Simulated assay, not measured.
Amino acid sequence: MEIRHTTNPTDVKQYDTERLRKEFLMENLYEKDELKLVYSHYDRMIVGGAWPVSKELLLDAGDGLRTEYFLERREIGFLNIGGPASITVDGEAYELDKLDVLYVGKGKREVKLASKDSSNPAKLYFCSALAHKELPTRKMTREEANPLNLGAQETSNERVLYKYIHADGIQSCQLMLGVTSLQTGSVWNTMPSHVHDRRMEAYLYFDMAEETRVFHMMGEPSQTRHLVVANEQAILSPPWSIHSGVGTSNYTFCWSMAGENYTFTDMDVVQASELK
């Protein structure tokens, strides 16, 4: 498990591209038949990827958490971005198609990840946060996530937002998770931008063509920076940072949050005219 420590905005002003990518970009979340984990000191979020092709993978952090099992003090949300998946939680199996989500609460001892078809393997993205109480395991399909149409062609941000884990959806302790998909011809997400100093956020960009890229915007509103992101790469977004992006084509991304506040709309909007 890789460890990422926190940074402060004063120091980040001095970072070059290489250092920005080292601190905030996760480039290689998917390797066949492996579980990849990144532990962030931002609100103790764990971000990871699993690509079970020819074998079943066990959710395990080794001795990284110093707990008896992964979810002893944690909750987790899984998003399937590949072929049909099977997730077994303490002996009960849940099948996930693409863009289905499974929430597993604190206290579940054994979680196994597998593909239904090795010729069309699943790819599972997951985010885990600390939890203070046990909540039931629950699956939600993309259709059940109550798609919300946002934006317009005129502003190049026509998109569909799917909220899965939140106060009015799958219940959790502090984790929130959803997916936003941009329509053909739209390239901007989260503009006007915002910050929410009470919680961190993680982004996974996916469903991108090999040659396309997203320019992910970050930094303080008065000191913006960018990271060039390829398909199935993820970003850690600090609480003090804006998080927005523009692509060379349309794309889809998963957003997840953890921290002090459990209100989806708790954000401080930063208009484009205020950015520097």
Rank of each mutant, 00 (worst) to 15 (best):
V179N: 05
H226R: 11
M218E: 02
Y262I: 15
P239E: 03
T265R: 11
A258H: 10
Q153N: 11
I170P: 01
T180A: 12
E232R: 07
V228F: 05
Q171K: 15
V246Q: 10
Q174V: 09
H226V: 06
S186G: 08
R199P: 07
V246F: 10
M200R: 12
P239N: 05
R213S: 03
Q183D: 10
M217E: 12
H196I: 03
S256T: 14
E232S: 06
H216E: 07
Q153C: 07
F215G: 13
V195T: 15
V179A: 07
E154Q: 13
T155R: 12
M191K: 13
G247W: 01
L275G: 03
E274P: 02
G185R: 04
H194W: 09
P221H: 02
D266S: 04
T265G: 13
L161W: 00
A272T: 15
N231I: 11
F253E: 00
S256R: 00
P221I: 08
G247Y: 05
E274Y: 03
N261L: 12
V214T: 06
S181F: 06
T263G: 07
K139F: 01
T155G: 04
Y262E: 11
S181T: 13
S244M: 03
L150Y: 12
P238R: 01
S249Q: 13
H194Y: 11
P238W: 00
F206V: 03
V160I: 14
L236Q: 09
L236Y: 10
Y251T: 07
N157E: 04
N261C: 14
R142P: 03
H243G: 04
D268F: 09
T180K: 01
S181E: 14
V187W: 13
Q271M: 12
V195Q: 05
E220D: 12
M176G: 09
E143I: 05
T252R: 11
Y203F: 15
A258F: 01
E154V: 13
N146I: 10
L177K: 07
N146E: 13
F253W: 09
M257N: 07
R213T: 04
Y251N: 01
A234R: 08
A230R: 15
E154L: 14
T190R: 00
N231L: 06
H243A: 00
T265F: 10
H243N: 11
K276R: 12
P221G: 13
W255T: 09
